[in-house]
Amino acid sequence: MNLKHLQHSFKSHLFNQESPIAEHIVSDQLSSEFRLGIYANAYATRLIEVLEGDYPVLHSLMGEEAFLELSRAYIQTHPSTYSSLRWFGRHLPEFLQQLQPYKCQPYLAELAEFEWKLVDAFNASDQPAISEHDVARIPPDKWPVLSLEFHPSVHGFQYQWNVLPVWQAHKQGKALPPPEKLHQHQTCLIWRQNLKTLFRTLEPDETQLFAAAQNGADFSELCEMLSDWIEDAEQIPLRAVTLLKTWISQALVADIKY
């Protein structure tokens, strides 16, 4: 057995314990199966710990046993392909959405998506955010065409279950409220400011404007959208500027183009 076959066979043992590798391991007081089992256990344990670290609230909501079962299934389906474990858990929201029995409990995938976006925000690149001084330098005639580039840590998250109260209860060490469907979809923003990962919910008009701005809408288009929400035309630019100032003060905006 050459080195390549040996390693393939060893990997198969780690994945599902179905492998002829034991024949090539010396047994003594400890059997070759027992010795290989040390590696198989360590492999699974390490990856389960990564999922527990990335999805602490999901872990808590599902309970020890169900989360373990989920983790084992996930490890089988999505073995790691990156040198950094930072990426290992990225398929879990989709996995929960697609697979029984999890897809019958849609709040699981939603909570997982929220937790994964927190991970993404935590690890996003260190692009600087623009300040109010940068905004002050925009010539008045350029305002209608200005468009925004959000910071790489900024993610919108749309949800229809009580994900945020569940997350907050876990954070505060309180008993988790049972999953509950909201009357309508809501959106929150997740981002990182001064090394802290933050989130906040959005008002309906801000939700629409944020999504449009993310897709490249310019300031005049954003103002036009506000007319759906605000009857008094004079109030529209005021609201638009207020939102923009909020986004800038919260370090959400990486660049302004005009």
């Binding site: 393939h8 060893f10 990997k11 780690l14 590696y39 492999y43 390490r46 990856l47 392909t81």
Partner: peptide, 9 residues
Amino acid sequence: GQGGHNLHD
């Protein structure tokens, strides 16, 4: 690792 998989051990 082997075959594109990282085994993290």
